[in-house]
Design a protein around this nucleic acid. Structure first.
Lengths: 209, 209
DNA sequence: AAGTGTGAACTTTTTCACAGCT
DNA sequence: AGCTGTGAAAAAGTTCACACTT
């Protein structure tokens, strides 16, 4: 699959580089050195160059990097040159927010359907996206190609995880309160909640007296 | 400040352990071994025990860990035994969502004020939280103790960052599109956007054909 | 002259394995 | 007998430093 697997930390930094490059592009910056880009990304230039070496030989010696073409290479490498189909599980306030907001769409992530278990929510429509009963998932998966399942349920998120996995969904973003894990290496779960970065900050504050 | 600094990855895992312990407590589980807890947290038991050793000697040899007291120790260690005061910068849809939702409150993070630069937003009230003009920040900071500044601006997030730092705020959660960094080691910025975990998933999907 | 790409040195993190406590 | 806590070994990640290209 790959000569050397990209480490998790490198992957995270590559995503940061991509975002910063997008901002630089808006500022009409055409070329940048590893030194300058690194400063904008909170790393040192050796780190940045080593990280980029996982993607390829992307710069010009003596010159630096083309912002546009580096951005292009990173988007490709990260699977962000294409669009992805999402479904949502659990109609919490956060779930409804994500359906209504356009941020994810702008980045190429499209919600195609939502699922819930509470009868009163079935049939509701948010931003053109229909809420189905979770037991209708097999039929929906039959019709559309689902890439990523996003779990926003406030209660029993594992019910949605199980249903998603049973329907062959391989990538899960879990935004519920409780982190979820599976043994199966073919399935990737990303756990996130706002309390993660906030707790890092509370730890920092507690220890910086 | 500390004998040995807690590594970033350990810190992140400790936060996961805390969340999982909270879930176990709800399931009325009183005691658990490192082996079983580790399984629930997606790590191996040696990792978990080593991580916990940064917090202290928390288990009982031959027995395991008390769910309640381990949770308590972790909360204390992570600065989550106390409440924290937040202000919000930038009245985007995400910003409004965070003001209105109660998730962060339930975890001990309280928004006390919001700030924006657009005249039409000043004076609005969400969930009892008043939106001030950013130039009123000094007066507000004079009256209330602000622990964490949360940036949700869609445009020019750096304006809020600068204003927050100028007012002595040391902890920043940046939820804007572009990651922000500062040299000053006394200030801690956590950058987060949903596109981080989603891009990790798109990378995974792209490479698991 | 300037700045990339990368082996080699160094540092940090993870895993192993077992002594020691209950 | 069972499971923690932790030094020591192994693995992984970061930084250095310089050969090499433009």
């Amino acid at each position: 699959m790959k000569v050397k697997d990209t480490p998790e930390n490198t992957l995270e930094r590559l995503i940061i580089y991509l975002k910063v490059l997008e901002a630089l592009e808006k500022k009409k910056i055409d070329f940048i050195s590893s030194e300058d880009l690194a400063k904008n990304c909170g790393v040192n230039s050796a780190q940045l160059r080593k990280d980029l070496s996982f993607v390829g030989s992307l710069g010009t010696k003596g010159v630096g990097y083309s912002v546009k073409s580096l951005k292009f290479s990173l988007k490709n490498f990260l699977g962000r040159a294409q669009e992805w189909n999402l479904i949502l599980g659990g109609l919490s306030p956060l779930g409804i927010f994500l359906l209504q907001d356009k941020i994810l769409q702008k980045e190429g992530f499209y919600f195609l359907a939502a699922f819930d278990t509470k009868e009163e929510n079935i049939g509701k429509i948010y931003n053109g996206i229909i809420v189905y009963n979770l037991n209708q998932l097999p039929q929906v998966v039959n019709v559309i190609k689902v890439d990523i399942g996003v779990i926003t349920a406030e209660e029993n998120p594992e019910i949605f995880l199980e249903a998603f996995i049973n329907q062959g969904i391989k990538a899960i973003l879990n935004l519920s309160k409780v982190p979820l894990f599976v043994e199966n290496q073919e399935i990737k779960i990303e756990n996130f909640s706002f309390s993660m970065p906030l707790t890092k900050l509370s730890y920092f504050l507690k220890n910086s007296l």
